[in-house]
Structures are given as structure tokens and as C-alpha cells.
């Protein structure tokens, strides 16, 4: 009886491997390289708005996207020109204000990279990433 249950369990495990292996082969080129952002480092547009003026907005998108439009008062800080733009941002920073970094959309990686560098390299605290990025900001504005 016991041996039969074990056999059945092993059979189920083996069967579960079949679709798993198939998926791994089919999606071998679609590996997600983005590690999820901890919830404590993400803010929604609503949360961000509730913080009012106590926020420094950081636009991590490319120069041309920032020039086209951006969140009012946002400071441009992207990795294309990190060395040039960082001093300007650090001149505007103040420890009392929270930093919210955004890029184009949910799928972009620039905001999390910039946020990470501000935490690790500049050793700043209260650095957050805007959930959904610029796209979400626009949706909320409509």
C-alpha cells in the first residue's frame, strides 16, 4: 500500500517534469533578467502623490524622452550620462525628501538601476522606484 503511494507520487513528479522541461526549452531565450523589486522599494502613483512636495523625482529615461515631457520638477539622471548628470542631482538632493526614480514603463530597467546606484554609490536613503513608471503616471493623470 505504502510502496504503491510512493510509486504514484514519483510518477506524478516525473509527469510534472515533462511540461516543465518543455517550457524551459521553448522559453530558453526569454529568460527574465530582472529580479523583482522588493515591495518596500516600490511606490504607486497614488502613494507618491500623497507624499506631496516631500519628493525629489528622478527621471531615468533617455535625454530625448525627458525633453519631450516629464513629471513636473523631475531631475534628469540617466546612465547614458551618469558622470555628467550626477553632480547636478546631488546638488538638489536633501535628506528630508524621498527620492522616486521612474523610467518609461513597467518593463524598463533603468529606474531600478539608477535607484540601486543612488543607494550603493551615493549611499542615499529613501530611494524608491515608481511602479509602472511614466506610463502609469500618464494613465493616472487622465
Amino acid at each position: 500500500m505504502k510502496a504503491s503511494a510512493v510509486r504514484q507520487a514519483l510518477l506524478l513528479i516525473a509527469l510534472a517534469f515533462v511540461p516543465a522541461i518543455g517550457e524551459a526549452i521553448y522559453f530558453r531565450d526569454k529568460v527574465s533578467w530582472q529580479s523583482p523589486i522588493p515591495a518596500s522599494e516600490l511606490v504607486t502613483v497614488d502613494q507618491a502623490r500623497s507624499w506631496g512636495d516631500n519628493v525629489i523625482w528622478v527621471d531615468a529615461r533617455a535625454d530625448n524622452e525627458f525633453e519631450r515631457d516629464h513629471i513636473p520638477g523631475a531631475i534628469l539622471l540617466n546612465e547614458d550620462r551618469w558622470n555628467e548628470l550626477l553632480p547636478h542631482f546631488l546638488g538638489q538632493w536633501s535628506p528630508e525628501r524621498k527620492i522616486i526614480v521612474y523610467c518609461s514603463a513597467q518593463s524598463c530597467n533603468a529606474s531600478r538601476e539608477v535607484a540601486k546606484r543612488l543607494r550603493d554609490e551615493a549611499q542615499l536613503k529613501n530611494v524608491f522606484v515608481l511602479d509602472g513608471g511614466w506610463e502609469e503616471w500618464l494613465k493616472d493623470k487622465r
Partner: peptide, 20 residues
Amino acid sequence: SIVLTLKAVITPLLEFQPTL
């Protein structure tokens, strides 16, 4: 559809800590 992946490991000339 196929996804091509470019992985680059960039070691900068200099790294600073902290930058402020």
C-alpha cells in the same frame, strides 16, 4: 519571434564610494 541577448560585463576605470 526570437529574443537575442547581449550580456556585457563593464568594469569601470574607477569606482567611488560614496559619491557624495
